[in-house]
Amino acid sequence: MQLSKDKLLDAYTRMKKIRVFEETMRDEFAKGTVPAFIHLYIGQEAIATGVCVELTDQDSISSTHRGHGHCIAKNSDLEKMTMEIFCRAEGLCEGKGGSMHIADLSVGMLGANAIVGANAPIAVGAALKQRVLGENLVSAAFIGDGASNQGAVFESMNLASVLKLPALFIFENNGYAEFTGIDYHCGGGDIAGRAEGFGMPSYKVDGSDFFAVQEVAAEAAERARRGEGPSAIECIAKRWYGHFEGDPQHYRTKEELETIRRDFDPLIIFRQKVEDAGLIENNDLNLIDDELSNQVTEAVEKAKNSPLPNVEELTTNVYEKGSY
């Protein structure tokens, strides 16, 4: 189905925002201003965006340690999100979560997760609202190729399949589980094939191409909303940078890294497709680029200048106030 111009601009904005944000975070990390480890989402922008444009604020996602892109794609407030990554008091999680545990429940972003694969059952839990309360919703778990080997992920796919829950298992196959290549770590090598074994429709798509992801995400989300159960989508994309910032990536060749930037840039692919089809003027996209660049710079400056949490907050939020 042809996407509206508004939807295309929205998708481009989300993808580009992820790119600009992550490039800025990379610079900030190099300068030593970010008080924690960060894992950049660059190269995978089309996956989070292709899925999240098919979701509403009532729909949920659960994310990974590489979660900045999911936050942005799910329309988290950029300033509060940036503050959280800088562990500031006014951040989404009041500075207690940081990059690897960032969440924004107001838009159904149920949290990045520093335990690989542990987010899959949590997304399945949100999907239970369809069964228990009859709510119309979809819940998506983003799962790396490394996480695809975790028992928690297998159990989640089986449970969602058995209970016919509106869950989407979005496998982001970026080729590496931390430092270890998929040729080494994934028995059988076919993540989508494994998912199919749990009795759900399963797709394998080009994760660098927004349109490839969005098309199947729309189909899977519709199916889930109709109460027909879960689906899995394996998105094959490239991780442009290291597992974490500062990872020297001795396990990758220079040639590999160069080809990635040339042939697998989700933003270039998107621009080419919409411009070739005459859907959007080049200038419209350039305007978005300028606007986002300002937005991100402002958010980062604001975050850096805002206070860390008060030390008195160390022991708050452990239990409901007054109950312990």
Partner: peptide
């Protein structure tokens, strides 16, 4: 995990 996610939701 599903119970945790359901509670959070």
């Amino acid at each position: 995990g599903a119970a945790a996610g359901a509670a959070l939701s």
